[in-house]
Simulated assay, not measured.
Amino acid sequence: MTVLPLRPPRRVRHETVTLAHGGGGSAMRDLVEDVFVSAFAVHEEGQPLEDQARLSLAELMARGDRLAFTTDSFVVDPLEFAGGDIGKLAVCGTVNDLAVGGAVPVALSCAVVIEEGMAVATLRRIAASIARTAREAGVRVVTGDTKVVARGACDKLFITTSGVGVIRTGLDLGIARARPGDVVLINGPLGDHGAAIMAARGELAVSAPVASDCAPLNGLIGALLDAAPGTRLIRDATRGGLAAVLNEMAEASNIGVRVAESAIPIRPEVRGFCDLLGLDPLYLGNEGVAVAVVPPEQADAALAALRAHPLGVLAAAIGTATAERPGRVVMDTPFGGTRIVDMLVGDPLPRIC
């Protein structure tokens, strides 16, 4: 029997991406295998790449009784910023969208649209960041796609990630499940991501000594659900910030929400940054903040579980669900007054994710 030697691994021979890297020929294979396949380890040694990932149904069913599926696109500007980059953001965003529904994330897809002329070195860093964050979250990138477009057809790099996860048996979280008396918890300070992105753009000649809070929250959420199995709902406070989550919850659950401004954790650097620019931290996007609503009898256990996790050290109980003023969010100010917290009409900071 003749044993054929393994072909040498493919290597990109250019410093920047060209249209040939999206043409389906050898240049594209070089890019895909060198930059992405090698980073993600999407196939076993010696096994061919297929046009789809194949997941064991038996392994999925052993984890729960329902499949969760989500997808998201990421167009953040700039691509790299303090605390993260578009690759880390893509993994965390999709993992967190699964986790807040009570799912254990299992596998991700990753599709990229690359602008002609992008530096291959930058692409390598982002691919490495995707792989590193996926390992941290305990998920695999199992399939993907690569497209290259002409200069000006996209802004450097766009990423779309989809994810599947399994929801444990008996768990039922939902935005419409809050009840009067429930306690609202958050796991950490608001506004870090939004402030970091704005500072990284440099458009306003204002700096903020703060890094993005971008992080996979599935471990934290798993600990929360173990401690408080009666948890009503969990949402990550991304675009629209905490204000959007609270308003969506109030409307969907037909309840009122009352929060205390003094209880909401915000870093002094972020507060000062927002004061300078006339922004409200309640509306800034976050990539590592989860909002959880739990029954009052489980609130102490839930808060303790959050604070015991590295991503929840500064967790706080910030308010309660009420039967008063259904659909409204009211904030108690430190001066003894109250104010209505509405949804934003527009977006104060586009392209944060």
Rank of each mutant, 00 (worst) to 15 (best):
Gly312Met: 00
Ala292Ser: 08
Ala290Cys: 11
Ile264Leu: 08
Ala299Lys: 10
Leu279Ala: 03
Ala308Asn: 12
Glu287Pro: 01
Asp300Thr: 12
Glu269Gly: 02
Gly319Asn: 02
Leu311Cys: 06
Val291Ile: 08
Glu324Leu: 09
Ala305Trp: 02
Thr320Asp: 14
Arg325His: 11
Ile264His: 10
Arg307Leu: 09
Pro310Asp: 10
Arg307Cys: 12
Ala323Arg: 14
Leu276Lys: 14
Pro295Phe: 00
Leu284Cys: 12
Gly312Ala: 07
Leu282Ile: 09
Ser262Ile: 10
Val294Tyr: 00
Leu306Arg: 00
Gly319Leu: 02
Asp300Pro: 00
Val293Glu: 04
Ala305Thr: 04
Ala292Leu: 02
Asp300Gln: 14
Glu324Arg: 08
Gln298Ala: 10
Val270Ser: 00
Val257Trp: 02
Ala321Arg: 02
Asp275Tyr: 05
Val313Arg: 06
Ser262His: 09
Arg267Phe: 10
Glu297Phe: 08
Ala290Ile: 03
Val257Cys: 11
Ala308Cys: 00
Leu303Ala: 07
Glu269Val: 14
Gly278Lys: 13
Arg258Gln: 12
Val257Arg: 03
Val259Leu: 13
Gly288Trp: 02
Gln298Ile: 00
Leu311Arg: 11
Val259Ile: 15
Asp300Leu: 09
Glu269Lys: 04
Tyr283Gly: 04
Pro265Phe: 01
Gly312Glu: 08
Gly285Asp: 09
Phe273Glu: 05
Pro268His: 05
Val294Gln: 01
Arg271Cys: 03
Ala317Ile: 02
Pro310Asn: 09
Val257Pro: 00
Pro268Asn: 05
Gly312Arg: 00
Asp280His: 09
Leu314Ile: 01
Ala316Arg: 14
Glu297Pro: 00
Pro265Thr: 07
His309Asp: 15
Leu306Glu: 12
Glu324Gly: 03
Asn286Tyr: 06
Ala290Glu: 05
Glu269Leu: 09
Glu287Asn: 13
Val259Gln: 01
Leu306Lys: 02
Val313Thr: 15
Phe273Ala: 00
Val270Lys: 04
Ala299Ser: 13
Val293Trp: 04
Leu311Trp: 01
Ala321Ser: 12
Ala302Asn: 04
Asp275His: 12
Pro310Trp: 01
Val294Thr: 08
Asp275Phe: 07
Glu261Ile: 06
Gly256Lys: 08
Thr320Ile: 08
Ala260Asp: 15
Ala292His: 07
Val259Met: 10
Tyr283Leu: 07
Gly256Tyr: 08
Cys274Phe: 06
Ala315Val: 00
Ala308Asp: 15
Ile318Leu: 14
Ala323Thr: 14
Gly285Met: 13
Ala316Met: 05
Leu276Gln: 15
Leu276Pro: 04
Arg258Pro: 01
Val313Ala: 15
Gly256Thr: 04
Pro310Ala: 03
Leu303Cys: 10
Gly319Asp: 05
Leu314Trp: 10
Cys274Glu: 12
Glu269His: 06
Ala308Glu: 15
Pro281His: 05
His309Ile: 12
